[in-house]
Design a binder for these strands. Structure first.
Lengths: 261, 261
DNA sequence: CAGTTTGTTCAGCTATTCTGAACACTCATC
DNA sequence: GATGAGTGTTCAGAATAGCTGAACAAACTG
């Protein structure tokens, strides 16, 4: 480990929303290092663009940080980040895993792993579009959308009845979504296909936005026996992926508060 | 200057949208340094969160970059002050608005509003760096810098020709900047991208320094019809922001005289 | 205008980083 | 499976880069 880089990291970490500007002396006293050391650190960081020193000799985070931040956003895809975790899940439970996103009101499968053969990169079935009211991923994704919009979608697309368990009433669906959002996961209890159950959870990105949902599909008889374990596994997987996408729970709770709910 | 920090900067600069992932060997050959040196640099940068190394030992930019980028956004006064005015402009004209600053001789987008959806908090495209000789914001920002410095920058960066209208001659560019400074706004008449025109004006702070430039981008055919109106709108917006930042015109004119030009 | 603060420079001493070879590991290919 | 070329990682000694504290310049404050 390069000591100099580590110290540079400490310096950078001083800059936050509350204290966006630091002088040489401030840094020196804060980190308990000589003024001259603080100076060379700050000056060097400014030279490589991570800091800038504007008027008055005080230092601020540089514009290059914006650049790098943007590159992070533009080059990390949730599909790539999800893949490894999905493979782990598939290997452990040997059940089918789905990764889904919302596109114009319908659920689209962005990735899929069949449980039978351990690491089968199945392109089959990808991009399939289905109505969201009868799938676990659909519920998860819709539960994070504004209800009026969801209602409109439902009314436009209709809520066809596929099994006896399919939710076909809009008000009942709203209740379901509220609960899903609250508890952080959704079930599909034979609502789309008889004898097939699913459990899904949301995947958050760096901005605490739900960008996708991940689900595991299990035959009903097997699902009933270990519902809780499957649920926990899916939730854990989603948390892992979310973390890989830069999601941090404490930020999320902060933002929720700031947004007023 | 700390050599280690400078090298760390070189390493970081390798990461861009085209090459978001680097291995130890890649970095070593690219920078002509031993593998072990590359390794310790990468490992240290990962330790402080500026990089992360995922599966396969390859390195990517870390999530802390996003953090820092966000802090830059949230703590830059003129950005905060600009936001409301930009949203007004975007709502009224439904065209794309850019807020840009100068960083080490290149134009950096500090904020961006797409005209289509009224209040789209777009982080997309932020931090993009581009050469200033072919953009309206670039001309505005450079027109308030000392010419010898500008000339040096131009010679160092070159003035690549993107369209038939791109200014590629240094002397011609000096004339253009003088005019821009005199008249208080700049056009980009399809000089960077065909069929795309821009008009930009400067934003002054309390100290009568140009801290940023704001531009509106409009398709050429539409721009030609109402050039003057767009221009007036942008100038008005910039005056509004400048006033919010404590800028007062009469002080400015006084200072210009005192500075002898 | 003096006093106190700031950021910046410098040169010797010390410890840090650099280096290249050896190691562990993954992935194709034979 | 064994093999080879490709990774990333570790380590010790050699050499250089960074730490330091005092002295400097420059800005602000009374």
């Amino acid at each position: 480990m390069l000591n100099t880089v580590l110290k540079a990291g400490q310096v950078l970490d001083l800059f936050d929303k509350q204290n966006p500007e630091w002088g040489v002396s401030d840094v020196a006293t804060e980190l308990n290092i000589p003024k001259s050391s603080a100076h060379s650190l700050l000056a060097s960081l400014a030279q490589i663009g991570l800091l800038r020193h504007g008027e008055g000799g005080r230092y601020r985070l540089g514009w290059k940080m914006l650049n790098f931040g943007q590159i992070v956003i533009d080059t990390t895809e949730f599909r790539v980040e999800s893949r490894a975790v999905m493979e782990q899940l598939a290997a452990q439970y040997r059940e089918t895993i789905h990764l889904a996103v919302l596109d114009d009101g319908v659920v689209v499968y962005a990735d899929k792993l069949q449980g039978q053969q351990a690491v089968q990169v199945a392109v089959t079935g990808l991009g399939v579009r289905l109505s969201p009211h009868c799938s676990a991923v659909g519920k998860v994704l819709l539960s994070h959308q504004p209800w009026p919009w969801v209602r409109e979608i439902m009314e436009k697309q209709g809520m066809p009845k596929f099994t006896d368990n399919t939710i076909t009433d809009v008000d009942r669906f709203q209740e379901e979504l509220l609960q899903v959002r609250e508890q952080g996961f959704a079930y599909d209890l034979e609502e789309a296909v008889p004898d097939l159950c699913c459990v899904a959870a949301p995947i958050y990105d760096y901005d605490s936005e739900v960008v996708a949902a991940l689900s595991m599909s299990i035959p009903a008889y097997r699902f009933e026996r270990a519902k809780k374990e499957y649920r926990a596994a899916v939730i854990r997987a989603c948390q892992k992926i979310s973390r890989n996408l830069g999601y941090m729970e404490f930020i999320s709770s902060y933002r929720k508060k700031a947004a007023g709910g």
